[in-house]
């Protein structure tokens, strides 16, 4: 990828590689991913793997039965969830559950309202799903996840760079800078670079990597331009609606070109926001997942 070859990226890599305990996704995700690459894997194999991590397994069942999927029958076993929702959905569900687990392990820091931030992530996911549907994207689960994962770098900074995090908070409290500018000032790079680096490490699909990298400026996206446009708009709508905590009080500029590419007119917003709020209601399970247990 072009961006990783730049000098800046190399520098960031150097800084980050020094981190001893980089955040990792639970083992179960990697295993599920491995099974899915093998065409002979059956629902049974995958179910056994998921059940080996009870925390994840119970979340998977809750999400599968939630209004997010709205399946008309009760799904009682993981196997049932896999055959009914399909293999790729299960992978997505496990990924989102894994991110929740990750939040639990890294999120608890006094300097950052991680629950508020998670809420912002879920809202961005929900708005992305609606805007994506409006744009005619077929795989809406993936769009939701792209929204959910757009900003994880922020929380990594606050967890692993506590000294710089204090600085960042101070700069943001000044009220004139965005979180991205503050991060650059304190660290030399921002959460977008961290997210990109992290997702590459996790071996996530190119879509998630590019959306994390480009959602502030979708015009530079090459592989996933439409989803980047979608998440860009969803992020700003979630901020505008005041849902959760995006790290600062600013409201970034909506890129005119993104609206044009998705053919969204000013008059569409009230409908999109209304549908987005309803979708957020259906996605409540993801917000609850962080608090429960």
């Amino acid at each position: 990828m072009a961006i990783t070859t730049t000098q800046l990226q190399e520098q960031i890599k150097l800084v980050l590689e020094k981190l001893k305990d980089i955040p990792t996704l639970p083992q179960v995700y990697t295993q599920v991913q491995g099974f899915l690459e093998n065409p002979k894997s059956s629902a049974k194999n995958i179910a056994e793997t998921i059940q080996s991590d009870p925390a994840i397994a119970s979340k998977v069942l809750k999400i599968a039965n939630s209004p997010f999927y709205g399946f008309p029958q009760r799904i009682t076993t993981i196997t049932h969830a896999i055959v009914v929702l399909g293999f790729s959905s299960i992978k997505n569900i496990v990924l989102s559950c894994s991110v929740v687990e990750l939040f639990k392990s890294v999120g608890e820091t006094e300097m950052f309202d991680y629950k508020g931030f998670w809420k912002h992530c879920v809202a961005t996911g929900a708005f992305s799903k609606i805007i994506g549907k409006n744009a005619g994207i077929a795989n809406l689960e993936e769009v939701f996840l792209a929204g959910l994962l757009h900003d994880l770098g922020k929380i990594v900074i606050f967890k692993y760079f506590p000294d710089e995090a204090k600085k960042i908070n101070k700069i943001i409290a000044g009220g004139k800078k965005t979180i991205g500018q503050a991060e650059k000032e304190a660290l030399g790079f921002s959460h977008t670079e961290i997210s990109t680096w992290l997702y590459e490490k996790w071996n996530l699909s190119r879509l998630f990597i590019e959306v994390a990298m480009c959602h502030h400026n979708p015009a530079i996206a090459t592989h996933s331009r439409v989803t980047s446009d979608v998440v860009h708009i969803a992020d700003i709508l979630a901020r505008a609606m005041g849902i959760g905590w995006a790290g600062d009080h600013s409201l970034p500029n909506l890129q005119e070109s993104s609206l044009n590419r998705l053919r969204i007119k000013g008059s569409d917003f009230s409908r999109l926001i209304q549908q987005g709020m309803a979708e957020l209601g259906r996605s409540k399970i993801f917000i609850d997942a962080l608090g429960s247990e």
Binding site: N38, P39, S41, S42, A43, K44, T79, I82, V83, F87
Partner: peptide, 11 residues
């Protein structure tokens, strides 16, 4: 049985 379908078959 439902769980006997492998991912290749569903693909």
């Amino acid at each position: 049985k439902a769980e006997e379908f492998d991912s290749n078959a569903t693909d």
